[in-house]
Simulated scan of single mutants.
Amino acid sequence: MGFSPPTPEHESPGVLLDQLLGSLLDDFSSWFERGLLLLDHCPDTVMPQDQQLILRDHLVQARKELCAATSLRQAAPIPMALEMETLAPWHQLMLSVWNLSAAMRRHGVTLP
Rank of each mutant, 00 (worst) to 15 (best):
Q51V: 06
V97A: 00
L66T: 01
F28W: 00
T70G: 05
W90R: 00
S4Y: 11
L37G: 06
L17Y: 06
I54G: 09
M84I: 14
V15L: 09
L55I: 01
Q49N: 12
E11W: 10
L16C: 09
G35A: 02
L16R: 11
L59K: 00
P13G: 05
S12R: 01
S4H: 11
H41D: 09
D26Y: 01
M94K: 14
H41I: 02
F32N: 05
E9K: 14
G2M: 11
G14K: 03
L111I: 07
T70W: 03
E85R: 15
A102V: 10
L24W: 03
L16T: 05
T110P: 08
H58V: 05
P77N: 14
R56L: 02
M1G: 15
L95Y: 07
A88V: 12
L20E: 07
V60S: 09
N99E: 14
Q49D: 13
H10V: 07
E33F: 10
A62G: 03
S4D: 15
A88F: 12
M47E: 05
Q52P: 03
L53F: 14
C67S: 15
V46Q: 06
V46I: 10
L111S: 09
E33K: 11
V46E: 05
G108K: 05
Q19G: 06
K64G: 09
S30W: 06
H58N: 15
A75R: 10
L20A: 15
P43Q: 03
S23T: 01
L36A: 00
L53T: 12
K64C: 11
H107A: 15
E9V: 14
I78Q: 13
P89R: 02
C42Q: 01
A68W: 08
W31E: 08
L87C: 01
C42S: 05
R73F: 01
L66C: 04
L24A: 04
L95G: 08
M104G: 00
L95K: 12
E83L: 11
D18W: 03
Q52A: 04
L82T: 00
T45P: 09
V60K: 15
K64Q: 15
L72W: 08
A81R: 02
H41S: 10
A81D: 04
Q51F: 10
R105W: 06
P8N: 08
Q92S: 13
A69K: 06
L82G: 02
T45N: 14
V46A: 09
S4G: 15
F28K: 00
T70M: 08
P6R: 13
F32G: 01
